[in-house]
């Protein structure tokens, strides 16, 4: 949308009102993310502006503190494992869903996506009772399974989207040249859908790395993940140490965003080459 040279005064006013309104919304979206970063370098132990002095003491504090480092370690154990599980299950299922029509397909797709829409607290309470019976409560295994469940829909959706442009004659071509189905999958299919698999995986990873509710219910202090540590920190006493960890997490989301953009470009390139 741009302003035409022949626009009337009312159109001009409207144009600028609209632009300013959009600018304010963008400000609303960005300010909370940006405002917390400077506070993490403050010397004061209060989270208020103006900032007093520059120090790295809060970073020192989180990197030398047992609870913060333990919870970070726990998240770095659980998130990748859950992501890998979600990627394997989700990719296979998406390939299967696109391969042929079979009875109940719509229903199954709805089932595969449903962990994304069911309120987290219901998933959490359900798993709490169910895992208690199976002895999976307060274990890494239980947490990995739970987070894999929550991550699976993202992988199914993204791989499904990549497969929309996939030409299945390539599978036949591979098979007619004597390759085994497994070899066809790894040398023909996978390289083309890898952007979808990876971006679904990133979503799954981010989900696990930011998941509080289910973890609150099924994890004991030993498996305390980073989000739980953040949650109790915010709840009890919000200190600049939280701002320091928040800054690190924002840094991580910038990296995630960049990787995502790279994958999107790559996927676009793959589909225009055809």
């Amino acid at each position: 949308m741009s302003l035409q040279p022949y626009a009337s005064p009312i159109e001009r006013i409207w144009f600028w009102v609209f632009r300013i309104f959009c600018g304010l919304i963008l400000l609303f979206l960005m300010v909370p993310v940006l405002v917390i970063i400077p506070l993490s370098f403050s010397e004061s132990s209060f989270l208020t502006y103006p900032i007093q002095g520059f120090s790295l003491r809060w970073y020192e504090q989180i990197f030398s503190s047992g609870p913060w480092m333990d919870s970070l370690k726990n998240s770095l154990i659980v998130a990748p494992l859950a992501t890998i599980l979600a990627m394997i299950f989700g990719t296979l299922a998406a390939v299967g869903l696109n391969r042929a029509d079979f009875p109940g397909k719509g229903l199954i797709l709805a089932l595969l996506i449903s962990p994304m829409v069911v309120p987290l607290v219901i998933v959490a309470v359900g798993m709490y009772f169910f895992f208690a019976n199976l002895g999976l409560l307060n274990s890494y295994t239980g947490l990995v399974i739970a987070h894999a469940v929550l991550g699976v829909p993202f992988v199914v959706i993204t791989v499904n989207a990549t497969l929309q442009n996939f030409d299945y004659n390539q599978i036949r071509a591979g098979a007619s040249l004597g390759a085994s189905p497994l070899r066809v999958f790894f040398t023909v299919v996978l390289p083309q859908i890898i952007p979808g698999v990876a971006s679904g995986g990133l979503f799954a990873f981010a989900t696990s790395f930011d998941e509080v509710v289910v973890a609150l219910f099924i994890a004991s202090p030993t498996e305390r993940t980073l989000p739980i540590q953040m949650f109790s920190g915010i709840r009890e006493n919000i200190s600049p140490a939280i701002a320091a960890m928040a800054t690190l997490l924002i840094l991580m989301s910038v990296v995630l965003l960049l990787v995502m953009e790279f994958l999107r470009r790559r996927s676009e390139k793959l589909s225009t080459h055809r």
Binding site: L29, V31, V33, A206, D210, M230, I234
Partner: peptide
């Protein structure tokens, strides 16, 4: 500007709103 908050942890954003 839309996607960065989208990718940022929910807890980070909630903490930021308390601060603001």
């Amino acid at each position: 500007c839309v996607l960065l908050p989208f990718w940022t942890s929910l807890l980070v954003r909630t903490a930021a709103w308390i601060v603001l």
